[in-house]
Amino acid sequence: MWGKTAEIAAQYVRKGSLIGVTGSLKFEYWNDRSTGVQRSKPVISVDRLDLLGSKQDNEQSGGNSSMGGGYPDDF
């Protein structure tokens, strides 16, 4: 995340917050310097961030979120 989206995330998103993310997923690949083994990591470019509320907000409302349904606890 960059710019205004990153500022909003830093201010409002905490562990346990329910968020929606729209963007793209790609993988970066490189060779490990010490072993020569190919490594990779996922990179998510966020185009849109939706604040859906916290787990506590979701539990207090009986499992209903602004998207019309509940989420599993480990989501």
Rank of each mutant, 00 (worst) to 15 (best):
E59Q: 09
W30S: 05
N58M: 14
Q38F: 00
G16T: 04
N64F: 09
D57F: 03
L51Y: 13
R48S: 13
A9R: 08
Y71T: 02
G69M: 07
T35L: 06
A10V: 00
S61R: 14
T5N: 14
Y12Q: 11
T5K: 15
S17M: 12
E7K: 13
E59C: 00
S45P: 00
G62C: 05
D50V: 05
V21A: 11
Y12P: 00
K41M: 08
S34G: 03
Q56L: 07
V37Q: 15
A6I: 01
T22N: 14
N64V: 07
S61N: 15
E7V: 10
G63V: 01
D50A: 12
N31D: 13
Q56N: 06
Y71R: 05
N64H: 10
P42R: 14
M67S: 05
G62Q: 03
D57A: 11
K41G: 01
G20I: 09
G16N: 09
S54E: 01
S24M: 12
S66P: 08
I19R: 02
E7W: 01
G3A: 10
S65G: 13
Y71V: 06
S45I: 11
S17H: 13
G70Y: 03
V43H: 03
V21I: 15
S61G: 02
Q11F: 06
K55Y: 12
A9I: 01
V46A: 15
G23M: 11
Y29E: 08
Y71H: 09
G63R: 00
T35Y: 06
G63L: 01
K41V: 04
S34W: 03
G16D: 09
E7M: 07
D50K: 06
G53Y: 07
D50P: 00
R48D: 10
I44C: 11
S61K: 14
A9W: 08
K55N: 06
K41N: 06
G36F: 06
D47M: 10
G3E: 03
L18R: 05
N31E: 13
S65P: 01
P42F: 10
D57M: 04
Y29Q: 07
V13H: 09
L25I: 15
M1I: 12
L49Q: 10
G36A: 10
Q11N: 11
R39F: 02
S45D: 14
A6T: 00
S66D: 04
Q11Y: 06
I8D: 08
V46H: 10
Q56C: 02
S54Q: 01
G69K: 08
G3T: 02
I19P: 02
W30F: 09
